[in-house]
Amino acid sequence: MGRDILDIASALRDMYLSVFGLSEEESDLTEMKMHKLLYFAQKIHYKHFGEWLFDDEFEGWIHGPVNRKVRATFMYLPPFDGELTPEEEYTLREVIYDYGRYTAGYLRNLSHQETAYKISREGLQEDEPGNRVISKNDMILDMFESDDDTLFEDCEVR
Results as ranks from 00 to 15, higher is better:
residue 2 G to L: 08
residue 2 G to E: 03
residue 3 R to V: 12
residue 4 D to F: 07
residue 5 I to C: 05
residue 5 I to A: 02
residue 6 L to Q: 09
residue 6 L to V: 03
residue 7 D to Q: 06
residue 9 A to E: 03
residue 10 S to D: 04
residue 10 S to Y: 07
residue 11 A to R: 00
residue 11 A to L: 11
residue 12 L to D: 05
residue 12 L to N: 02
residue 13 R to T: 06
residue 14 D to E: 11
residue 16 Y to D: 08
residue 16 Y to R: 00
residue 17 L to W: 07
residue 17 L to I: 00
residue 18 S to A: 14
residue 19 V to R: 01
residue 20 F to L: 09
residue 20 F to T: 00
residue 21 G to Q: 11
residue 23 S to V: 12
residue 25 E to R: 10
residue 26 E to Y: 09
residue 27 S to I: 13
residue 27 S to A: 14
residue 27 S to E: 11
residue 30 T to H: 00
residue 31 E to T: 14
residue 32 M to S: 09
residue 32 M to D: 13
residue 35 H to V: 15
residue 38 L to R: 02
residue 38 L to K: 01
residue 38 L to M: 10
residue 38 L to I: 05
residue 38 L to A: 02
residue 39 Y to A: 06
residue 41 A to L: 07
residue 42 Q to K: 14
residue 44 I to H: 11
residue 44 I to M: 11
residue 45 H to E: 11
residue 45 H to K: 02
residue 45 H to N: 08
residue 48 H to V: 00
residue 48 H to F: 09
residue 50 G to V: 09
residue 50 G to A: 03
residue 50 G to M: 06
residue 50 G to C: 14
residue 51 E to G: 06
residue 52 W to T: 04
residue 53 L to M: 11
residue 54 F to H: 02
residue 54 F to N: 02
residue 55 D to P: 00
residue 56 D to A: 15
residue 58 F to A: 12
residue 58 F to Y: 04
residue 60 G to H: 00
residue 63 H to N: 13
residue 63 H to W: 06
residue 63 H to R: 12
residue 64 G to W: 03
residue 64 G to Y: 01
residue 65 P to R: 05
residue 65 P to M: 07
residue 65 P to I: 05
residue 65 P to E: 06
residue 66 V to M: 01
residue 67 N to C: 07
residue 67 N to H: 06
residue 68 R to Q: 05
residue 68 R to C: 01
residue 68 R to D: 11
residue 68 R to H: 10
residue 70 V to S: 08
residue 70 V to P: 03
residue 71 R to D: 14
residue 71 R to N: 15
residue 72 A to K: 14
residue 72 A to V: 07
residue 74 F to E: 08
residue 77 L to P: 08
residue 78 P to K: 05
residue 81 D to R: 15
residue 84 L to S: 09
residue 84 L to C: 12
residue 86 P to M: 03
residue 86 P to G: 08
residue 86 P to H: 07
residue 87 E to T: 11
residue 89 E to Q: 14
residue 91 T to M: 09
residue 95 V to L: 06
residue 97 Y to A: 12
residue 97 Y to D: 13
residue 98 D to M: 07
residue 99 Y to K: 01
residue 99 Y to P: 09
residue 102 Y to W: 11
residue 103 T to H: 05
residue 105 G to L: 11
residue 105 G to Q: 08
residue 105 G to T: 12
residue 107 L to Y: 04
residue 108 R to E: 07
residue 110 L to S: 07
residue 111 S to T: 12
residue 111 S to Q: 03
residue 112 H to C: 03
residue 112 H to E: 02
residue 113 Q to N: 14
residue 114 E to Q: 14
residue 114 E to C: 10
residue 115 T to L: 06
residue 116 A to P: 02
residue 116 A to D: 00
residue 117 Y to R: 01
residue 117 Y to L: 01
residue 119 I to F: 01
residue 120 S to W: 02
residue 120 S to L: 00
residue 121 R to I: 04
residue 122 E to H: 03
residue 124 L to W: 01
residue 124 L to P: 06
residue 125 Q to V: 00
residue 126 E to C: 04
